[in-house]
Design a protein around this nucleic acid. Sequence first.
RNA 1: CGGGGUGUAGCGUAGCCCGGUAUCGCGCCACAUUUGGGAUGUGGAGGUCGUAGGUUCGAAUCCUGCCACCCCGACCA
Length: 490
Amino acid sequence: MGKGITSRGEDYSQWYNDLVVKADLAEHSAVRGCMVIKPYGYAIWERMQAVLDKRFKETGHSNAYFPLFIPKSFFSKEASHVEGFATECAVVTHYRLKNDGTGNIIVDEEAKLEEELIVRPTSETIIWNTYKGWVESYRDLPILVNQWANVVRWEMRTRLFLRTAEFLWQEGHTAHATEAEAIEEAERMLDVYAEFVEGTLAVPVIRGRKTENERFAGALDTYCIEALMQDGKALQAGTSHFLGQNFAKAFDVKFTSKEGKLEHVWATSWGVSTRLMGALIMAHSDDQGLVLPPKLAPIQIVIVPIFRTEEEKQAIDNYVDTLTSELKARDISVKYDDRDTQRPGFKFAEWELKGVPLRIALGARDMANGTVELARRDNQTKETVSQDGLTDHVVALLDEIQEAIYHKALTFRDEHITPVDSYDEFKAVLDDKGGFVSCHWDGTVETEKRVKEETKATIRCIPLDVQDEDGVCIFTGKPSRHRVLFAKAY
RNA sequence: CGGGGUGUAGCGUAGCCCGGUAUCGCGCCACAUUUGGGAUGUGGAGGUCGUAGGUUCGAAUCCUGCCACCCCGACCA
């Protein structure tokens, strides 16, 4: 694909777009800021959904579905929430079209809604309005519900997967009797996300808290996982919010406690989106295209036959039949690419572009020797191995690849956490090296904003495992108790 | 939403200044030879030049509106 997809610089976003399109993941749609997720891209998203959904169920949650439209009055009940989302809402004002008499279809001004409907940018308000009717007693709690849905945020500037006007996500919304229980839930779900992103997507993350400035609109505390992309920019991969009693108060959701007192419930919300697709792509891809970790790849192994005659093809087919059923019995998804319309070299390149972790190629020579050629996508190595014990070998190899991809990303990430103690150093690292910069900060919103204005870097998080350490803010010189992580971010 | 740029076949483009219905490459189709890293040759198909108007005998080309995309900024999962 010519110029390196992983090289830093101005062309990076162009190459990201090219990769997304060429690997057949998604494309721009005719609708401003929206994308079409193509079947191959959607298959990857479905893998993410499946793994996450299983974890949600295991942690006691159930799925439900709430309306796409939110009456404006609901939306404005929580002050900081509406303020946070007001500038990016799609609004439904009419419910009918008509012919203007000359063949043009126009909005029927007579069909104006009395109250506008907001296309959900997130569902807290419609859900809390609903929960009001579900809760009376502590016996009704907790409510542990997740929704898989689309949401709309009218972003001014969009990028495939990373920021589109409409995106797919899941949003968990829980209600609890106590503050401690709600905080525990928010932290638990952050862990679920972190384990998923690291274990399945093979993308290392830093668990942390957002500063007041970066907090979700309406939350008391926002937990997040932050990942690092290969161009040195950070990406927020998931968030989990402790909402306190803000929404319960705004929507008047009260319950009678064991002690007979009427109290507001405590809330959390948490979500990850198709943005994870962007994280996956930007964390692992190389100049040959996508690199998918085996646990996520819709196709884990592709088999490419190499043949001249029908007899040769027939012999390979017979062997591949046996091999694929053995692999499928081990829960490995296999694609036998026996198209006779493409040559082997073309297929090799195409499946590499699509990120299939492991390729098995075999021809007459292999059939005579009882071997196959195994090619790893992650490190581009090839080896010729015996057909005996091949299934065991590739099962182990897939695990090894999963590990290798993670460790490569982890090494890169760890090399790009740079401690600095002066503002000059801070700026130099951001400009020359990128990645996270670990430094002292005086804890004020004002300092954070000024640093952002001057350097475009924001505080990605205060890591959960941060060590207490006395120091002084790199910007103001005021005292600080611990370091925070700054970075330029998507 | 502000600044800048772009829009010509599925993709990438030439032509635009200086108006006369369109260039080249990739891809696609057919046939032949090929097949262990993106094949080669020959022939062929495919375009109301983003869109709606205007100027003109005539518009891809000049003018205006609109739409979409890209880059920078502000905003953001």
